[in-house]
Design a protein around this nucleic acid. Structure first.
Length: 184
DNA sequence: TCACACGTTTCG
DNA sequence: CGAAACGTGTGA
């Protein structure tokens, strides 16, 4: 009898990579290479810098405790908006490719059709994402050694739904949003 | 490099 | 259609 899998895998690493340092470096080396195609960048509205991983976002308390409102939950992030930037039109923001991690397949931007390529990270806002501990009983937990997957309960909702299709709800108000509001 | 997690494919 | 396994990419 195993002593219960503490918290699951016993995550030794506390993944906390918050870069509080606000480096206002706007200059982008590289000429304007708009690579807005990168799925990652697309989600980086909030991050003009590109170094803020939206991964674990503010898992803090979504109880809307006052909701930190100003997106300040993390504090320090958007506060440093250079005035100049604010003046820029939405579309011109040109994120200035945030230090591309140099992903392997970025060349052709495979996302074109079919395989999405490029792994996405959890949004960090869904209930599953907020889950810190694994149930330890679901198949994923039990077969993680072979399954290599995260607990079913922790599987990001976004990743589950848009596992291959992006953009599919917003836009059509009355379409079959299919967003099934969960029968709840 | 290892570990973890997502994406894809195949089997049930 | 769903679950499991495999393979791969990303992060530390």
């Amino acid at each position: 009898m195993q002593p219960h899998r503490t918290g699951g895998e016993g995550k030794q690493h506390a993944r906390h990579g918050e870069h509080a340092s606000s480096q206002g470096q706007e200059m982008h080396h590289h000429h304007g290479n708009n690579n807005f195609q990168s799925g990652y960048a697309a989600a980086n509205h909030m991050t003009k810098q590109g170094h803020a991983h939206q991964d674990m976002l503010s898992l803090s308390n979504r109880s809307s405790s006052g909701n930190g409102g100003g997106g300040g939950v993390n504090g320090v992030n958007m506060s440093n908006f250079p005035a100049g930037m604010l003046g820029l039109p939405p579309g011109v923001i040109t994120n200035s490719s945030p230090c591309p991690s140099t992903s392997p397949g970025m060349t052709s931007g495979g996302q074109g059709s079919g395989a999405s390529k490029r792994k996405r990270k959890r949004c960090g806002v869904c209930a599953p994402c907020r889950r810190l501990i694994n149930c330890g009983v679901c198949s994923a937990c039990r077969n993680r050694k072979t399954g290599h997957q995260i607990c079913k309960f922790r599987k990001c909702d976004e990743l589950k739904k848009k596992a291959g299709s992006i953009l599919l709800e917003v836009g059509d108000t009355h379409t079959h949003t299919h967003t099934d509001t969960h029968t709840h």
